[in-house]
C-alpha cells in the first residue's frame, strides 16, 4: 500500500531524513519508534503532504501512485489520514461543520454524492459514542479549549468518521491517561481490517500494548536502523535507544 524508497528530506538547511526505506502492506500495523529528533514526525508530515519540508531524493508511492506530487487534500481523498501530535484549535468553526466540510470535500473529490444531513449526523453521533465523548462537543469549536487528551481523542474521532485506508498516527499516545489511551486504542483497532494499514509513530511502548503491531522499526539519524516484530518494542522499552548506536 505504502512504499517509501530512499527518502531524503530537509527543513531549511537541515537534513532530517537521509535515505529512509519502508514498505507497509494492506492489513498491517507498523510502529515507527525512535529517539527525539530522529525524524519520526517529519516522516508522518511528509506522508501527509506538509510544505514545511523539501524532499531532495527518493519517492513515496501509495497504492502505486506517486504521492509526492499530490497536495495534502488529494492525499486525504486518496485515503491517507494523519493524526497530529499537536492538533490545531480552530475557534469559531464547530466540530460538526469541520467534519462535514472534510467528508463532503473528500466525497466530492472521489465523485461520490454528498451525504444527507440527517444520515451524516447519525453516523457522527455513532462515532462520538464509540469514542465515549460528549455529543455536545460537536457544536463547540474544533479543539477549542480541549485538554491535550481530548484533542487526541478528537483526532481518532475524525479518523473514525473519515475511515481512511492508511492511518498515520503521530504520537497519538502522548498526553493520554490510561483510560483515554484504551479508548484511543479501541478506536484504532475498530478500523483495523485487511484493506487498511496503520503507521504508529511513537516514543513509547505503551500504545503498542493495546494496538499490537506486526512490524516495529527504529528510526535513528533519518534512517530505519533496525526492524523486527513486537518483541523489538519491548526490548527498546527496557534498554532505551542507546544500545542501537553502539551496535
Amino acid at each position: 500500500m505504502l512504499e517509501i524508497e530512499n527518502l531524503h528530506a530537509r527543513a531549511g538547511d537541515t537534513a532530517i531524513l537521509k535515505g529512509l526505506n519502508l514498505t507497509v502492506n494492506a492489513g498491517e500495523v507498523h510502529a515507527v519508534m525512535g529517539p527525539n529528533g530522529s525524524g519520526k514526525s517529519t516522516l508522518s508530515k511528509i506522508i501527509a503532504g506538509s510544505e514545511d519540508y523539501i524532499v531532495t531524493d527518493g519517492r513515496i508511492r501509495f497504492e502505486g501512485r506517486d504521492l509526492l506530487t499530490l497536495p495534502p487534500e488529494e492525499r486525504a481523498a486518496a485515503g491517507i489520514f494523519l493524526g497530529f501530535q499537536y492538533p490545531v484549535e480552530i475557534p469559531g468553526v464547530s466540530n460538526m461543520v469541520f467534519l462535514r466540510a472534510a467528508v463532503n470535500a473528500q466525497r466530492k473529490h472521489r465523485g461520490e454524492p454528498e451525504l444527507e444531513a440527517a444520515d451524516f449526523l447519525a453516523w457522527v453521533r455513532h462515532r462520538v459514542k464509540q469514542m465515549k465523548m460528549d455529543p455536545a462537543m460537536l457544536s463547540r469549536g474544533v479543539n477549542e479549549g480541549f485538554s491535550g487528551g481530548e484533542k487526541k481523542r478528537n483526532e481518532i474521532l475524525q479518523m473514525l468518521v473519515l475511515e481512511p485506508k492508511l492511518m498515520v498516527l503521530d504520537e497519538t499516545d502522548s498526553g493520554l491517561d490510561i483510560d483515554a489511551l484504551k479508548i484511543v486504542a479501541e478506536g484504532i483497532n475498530a478500523l483495523r481490517s485487511p484493506a487498511r494499514a496503520t503507521l504508529l509513530v511513537t516514543h513509547y511502548q505503551r500504545l503498542l500494548d493495546h494496538v499490537q503491531p506486526d512490524h516495529v522499526h527504529v528510526l535513528s539519524g533519518g534512517r530505519i536502523v533496525k526492524s523486527g516484530g513486537p518483541d523489538l518494542a519491548r526490548e527498546l522499552e527496557e534498554k532505551g535507544y542507546g544500545w542501537l548506536d553502539a551496535a
Binding site: 487534500e73 486525504a76 490545531v88 472534510a102 467528508v103
Partner: peptide, 13 residues
C-alpha cells in the same frame, strides 16, 4: 499555515 495544513489533511481543498 499549520491550521491550513490541518484542514487540508482532512481533505478540505
Amino acid at each position: 499555515p499549520t491550521a491550513l495544513f490541518y484542514l487540508r489533511t482532512r481533505g478540505v481543498p
